[in-house]
Amino acid sequence: MTTFLGNLDESKLKKLKEKVSLSFKMPIDHSKDWEKCSLISNFFADYCVSSFYKKKEIKSILSTIINELIENAMKHSYQDQNEINIFLKNCEKEIIFITENIATNDTANNLIHTLNQLQTKDIESLIINRMKNNLMYNQEQSEIGLLNIIHNFKTSISAKITPIDKTNLNIVEIITRLEHGQ
């Protein structure tokens, strides 16, 4: 069964994707393509920022957000899947980013757990606790990327998780909205 998290339903997501301003497919050979995360983030930020007044500041914010989203999709993609999709929609008062990747059930459940925690816990405490745990358990990943962009830039994040029949895999779509008011 498809799971929706955050302020999202099927019709809202469909409308967003119909009006995409920019879309991109990115290969995900982790060892070879990592540097492309930053390249693509800066490109998307430059693309968005052309009509803004405080270009430098907004580019920095957008590049930071997009980079964390792309890194998150790349890190959590199932190993045999070789690309992620990125969509951008620049609206009058908000910018919307959608990342799409294939993930295992465990990864999808971790995302559900994190987004559910946001409903009940203070984000800054969650981030600090994850930082402490990272050192304590010498964890491979930081797991604070999404939390940081929600906390620092007041973005809202929704997700759609669609199981793929007869597999333990899912299509994970993360929708991030950033209000800009310019």
Binding site: T64, N67, E68, E71, M131, Q141, S142, G145, N148
Partner: peptide, 8 residues
């Protein structure tokens, strides 16, 4: 720029 891995 410093990503979340770097902040950690």
């Amino acid at each position: 720029y410093l990503n979340s891995s770097g902040i950690t």
